[in-house]
Design a binder for these strands. Structure first.
Length: 563
DNA sequence: AGCGAACTA
């Protein structure tokens, strides 16, 4: 045991960031903000929180918070830090991710620490001492193992096939070691793994010893954790980590990825595009998160922190005025902000408490008055996950038939209630999910999220009440959140809808139970833009509800709504 | 008669 600790301590000291320990602590002491740019493998994520802890920053009830942009990274990093500190995960070192809390004593509002913006430590008004306001910047080099980069000579036509043949080639020619592959999505990951499995059957020489492992958020926790277990001798792991964007990645993220190969020893990186493409066409940097994402939630959080002048806010990467205006419009129409752009009470402050899309939060608040909060919280949980249905290729017909068993004439939201009811009646059976083409992991998540929403709702003074089958109340509550997404069917058209807000042409998504049913009036949850604009998760409404739940939004649009 | 990117609070 003692040997183990000594060994771990030696490992820690070998990390590049260790050399900067004193400097980092000095900067943090003397500057309100310290920015440390650390290359992959520098140890910044696991070590800096420990330096701060050792220097006393966690004393007196204070907490050292560390944010990560991915759930899996949060778990892996906190487990590693707990191990290095020799404590149980959840005691001194814990983590929270949305809908889960793995801390026993940490009391922190995790909402505060979003990766989209950082918070400045301010010196008290008028004080002459205390930390300097201008940020300190420090760069820390990586571990510096060399990574040899290979490019393809010609652009590849079928990138998944190229991935598979590259892996087989590596397996045949390279010394032992694992392979990390970046693919664009769950579908491609499963396809690649299937191709590798087929290869193992038909061509034993090239693919022997391959142990392909998938990694994406739709997997269960234990399936995801498999990638962290040591690889058996003579085997080679292949963990597929999906990339964030399908569009071409930037040079910066390509470099970051190749860095993963050199973390513990020299490595190789195979890029399935040409060097010419990398040098001449690939964009240098990606667009900052701030300028890509929907601002609505960020604006609510700033407002909740008491920052009213968001236009004057010192953004790390300022969003466009149009994006800002759009976010303010949505929040105003949801009555989360008032005429002075201040959070309304109680609605605005309640919405700021909920870790959900504001439209979903508003729907929950409305359900309390409409007497259907029990049903709406189930719907909110389903709308907060990706999909309850399994991704099933080649069994589309069977899946459609299964869906029909739950389909409700009122639309997808009511269908979700039927699905949830069936899952409970099956006693949360995985077999039942399998038979009905439902994703068991997703259904378990729905139950978990629902429990948490129930707790939050209680805190906000909403008591759970069922409307006992009154689906009009349920649809009205959905409308109260999503009225801005109201659409009307174009008369004599074949399923063409126009949004009331902007008269844009939209269609019901083929995965909706209302596809080809085409009711006259609907509201949708979100739009999927492909060849056409498709509405996802659609429910029928009575247009008179629009002026009822959102008079301020619709009173000037009467013309658009007249028949 | 027909879709499909993914991550997060």
């Amino acid at each position: 045991m003692a040997y183990g600790y000594a060994n771990m301590e030696k490992q820690r000291q070998r990390l590049p960031v260790y050399k900067y320990r004193t400097e980092i602590l000095y900067l943090v002491e003397n500057h309100a903000t310290t920015i440390i740019v650390g290359e992959t493998g520098s140890g910044k994520t696991t070590q800096i929180p420990q330096f701060l802890k050792e220097a006393g920053w966690a004393e007196g009830g204070r907490v050292i918070a560390c944010t990560q942009p991915r759930r899996l990274a949060v778990q892996a990093v906190s487990a590693r830090v707990a191990e290095e500190m020799g404590v149980n995960l959840g005691d001194e070192v814990g983590y929270t991710i949305r809908f889960e809390d793995h801390t026993t004593s940490m009391k922190l509002t995790s909402d505060l620490f979003q990766p989209t913006f950082y918070w400045k430590r301010q010196a008290p008004e008028g004080s002459t001492h205390g930390p300097k306001l201008e940020p300190a910047i420090l760069s820390v080099e990586g571990r510096g193992f060399s990574v040899k980069i290979h490019y393809v000579e010609e652009p590849v036509s079928d990138y998944i096939r190229s991935v598979v043949s590259t892996i087989l080639l590596i397996n045949e020619r390279e010394p032992p070691g694992d392979v990390l592959v970046f693919l664009t999505g769950q579908d491609d990951i499963e396809t690649a793994i299937k191709l590798l499995a087929e290869e193992a059957h038909s061509n034993q020489k090239n693919s022997s010893g391959l142990l392909p492992l998938p990694l994406y958020s739709g997997l269960s926790r234990s399936e995801q954790e498999l990638i962290f277990t040591p690889t058996p001798r003579g085997k080679r792991k292949i963990s597929d980590i999906e990339s964030l964007v399908v569009a071409p990645i930037s040079k910066a993220s390509a470099r970051q990825r190749s860095g993963r190969a050199g973390r513990v020893r020299p490595g190789k990186c195979y890029r399935l595009y040409t060097e010419d493409y990398f040098l001449k066409q690939m964009p240098g940097e990606g667009i900052p998160e701030m300028q890509r994402s929907n601002l609505v939630s960020t604006v609510i959080q700033l407002k909740a922190l008491g920052i009213d002048n968001i236009l004057g806010f010192d953004w790390p990467a300022p969003p466009s005025p149009q994006a800002m205006i759009r976010a303010l419009e949505v929040l105003y129409s949801l009555q989360i902000l008032d005429d002075d752009a201040k959070l309304t009470s109680p609605t605005g402050f309640q919405v700021a408490e909920l870790p959900l899309d504001p439209m979903i939060s508003k729907m929950i608040l409305a359900s309390s008055e409409l007497g259907c909060s029990d049903e709406i919280i189930t719907i909110a949980a389903v709308l907060s996950i990706q999909s309850v249905w399994v991704i099933a290729r080649g069994v589309q017909k069977e899946q459609d038939e299964a869906k029909l068993r739950f389909a409700a004439a009122e639309g997808d939201h009511v269908t979700f209630l039927n699905v949830y009811k069936g899952f409970l009646e099956s006693k949360k059976s995985s077999q039942w999910c399998y038979k009905n083409f439902l994703n068991y992991q997703s259904m378990k998540k729905v139950v978990e999220i629902r429990d948490q929403l129930k707790r939050i709702a209680r805190r906000l003074g909403i008591t759970l009440k069922s409307c006992d089958g009154d689906m009009e109340a349920v649809r009205k509550a959905v409308t109260a959140g999503f009225f801005a997404n109201a659409c009307r069917l174009e008369p004599h058209s074949n399923g063409v809808y126009k949004t009331i807000r902007g008269s844009e042409e939209v269609y019901i998504h083929p995965s909706s139970v209302l596809f080809r049913v085409n009711p006259k009036w609907v509201v949708y949850q979100s739009i999927v833009s492909t060849e056409r604009q498709y509405m996802r998760n659609v429910v029928t409404i009575n247009p008179s509800w629009l002026t009822e739940v959102a008079p301020h939004f619709y009173q000037n649009r009467q013309n658009a709504m007249d028949l």
